[in-house]
């Protein structure tokens, strides 16, 4: 499928449009900007590196099927996080007992350094939090989202984000204290 597009000099160019109504170039741009941070987010909140790949694909497929057809990365990114969060929650509730510590096993072949050992410890500490606490902390401290944006992504009241974030932080701080970090 081809759609007309106007260049800076006024000439018409034709860009490929996917079957779902979004230009391939726009999607490529969004994907290249968001895939890696989104994978890290999914892997950490699901606690599984292997299911992170599947969830990442599902997220982009849902995104392409969604009514969102804009090209603004600022709008697309939180939307992708919202889809990914819902998919993780859905999967987490289906396979509640299988999610812990798989992250470490999947990565064990790749590294064998002191940094990796630290990573295992960190993963174990992080996996003691529930999925919402992990998501809250990640979105706030790694992605740097505002409370309002976090509320929209996690589908919670924006006024309660502050309290939930405080509790999650407290939980993590307690675990760190116990581990002597």
């Amino acid at each position: 499928m081809r759609a007309p597009n106007v260049r800076g000099d006024g000439t018409l160019v034709h860009t490929r449009v996917s079957a779902l109504g979004m230009e391939d170039s726009t999607f490529n741009e969004i994907y290249n900007e968001t895939a890696h941070p989104l994978w890290r987010y999914v892997a950490r909140i699901s606690g599984s590196a292997t299911s992170a790949d599947d969830i990442l694909q599902e997220t982009y497929l849902s995104f392409l099927r969604s009514p969102f057809k804009g090209s603004d990365l600022k709008e697309a990114k939180p939307y992708l996080y919202k889809i990914a969060t819902n998919l993780v929650y859905k999967r987490f509730h289906k396979t509640r007992h299988e999610t812990q510590s798989e992250f470490d096993e999947a990565n064990q072949d790749e590294t064998a350094s002191a940094a990796f050992n630290e990573s295992i410890e960190m993963s174990q500490i992080f996996s003691r939090l529930n999925e919402r606490e992990r998501a809250l902390l990640w979105l706030a401290y790694v992605e740097g989202y505002e409370h309002k944006e976090i509320a929209a992504i996690l589908n919670v009241n924006s006024l309660s984000v502050r309290v939930l974030l405080y509790r999650a932080r407290r939980q993590l701080a307690e675990h760190l204290e116990v581990e002597g970090k």
């Binding site: 890290r40 992170a52 902390l137 790694v142 932080r169 993590l172 701080a173």
Partner: peptide, 14 residues
């Protein structure tokens, strides 16, 4: 917590 989360993010490579 913020510092710890940053370190965790650095060690999470796709």
């Amino acid at each position: 917590v913020s510092d710890w989360m940053q370190r965790l993010a650095e060690q999470t490579q796709p």
